[in-house]
Amino acid sequence: MLIVWILVALAALLVIIFFSYYNRFAVLSNRIDNSLSQIDVQLKRRADLIPNLIESVKGYMKHEKAAIQAVTEARKALVAAKDVAKRVRADNQLESALKTIFALAENYPDLKANTTFVELQKELTATEDRVAYARQHYNDSILSYNNLCTTFPGRFFAGMYGRKEKEYIKIEEAERKAVKVKFE
């Protein structure tokens, strides 16, 4: 009788293990999708801020048509891009165009005193941070998923559930965050 109970317990344990691995794959895979859409959300937010910026800058920076043009075009490219990888690349373009604008703004004290502009600048920097963090989270999510797929015992279950390692969409993390560590 005891042996039956032990077998029942073992069977139950096995079922739980199978279920929990199935769920783990599902959760991690969802996290990847979710983090990818999070990148999009943040990029959209950023794109939405640009027209306001152009509006507030236009009056002051009359002689910087080219720089303003570059921002407008980068935004257009961002909105038109078909997939996330392209959008991220467009965002890099936008980022450097914005840097030019903000650098030029230093020459216009009136503009720098304009609260709308200052607020927008802050907001844009914050969304840039968010984009960077969203990209980082995406990469982290892929990494933990792939680690589960390639290490034992996850590897065994991955084969069973038809889960394969995922390709990274090449989304580099922002260079701004490059880590400098002093060697002593």
Partner: peptide, 11 residues
């Protein structure tokens, strides 16, 4: 802003 950025990074 700081917290929101970090919650995105950490999920």
């Amino acid at each position: 802003n700081a917290v929101e950025g970090l919650t995105i990074a950490s999920g």
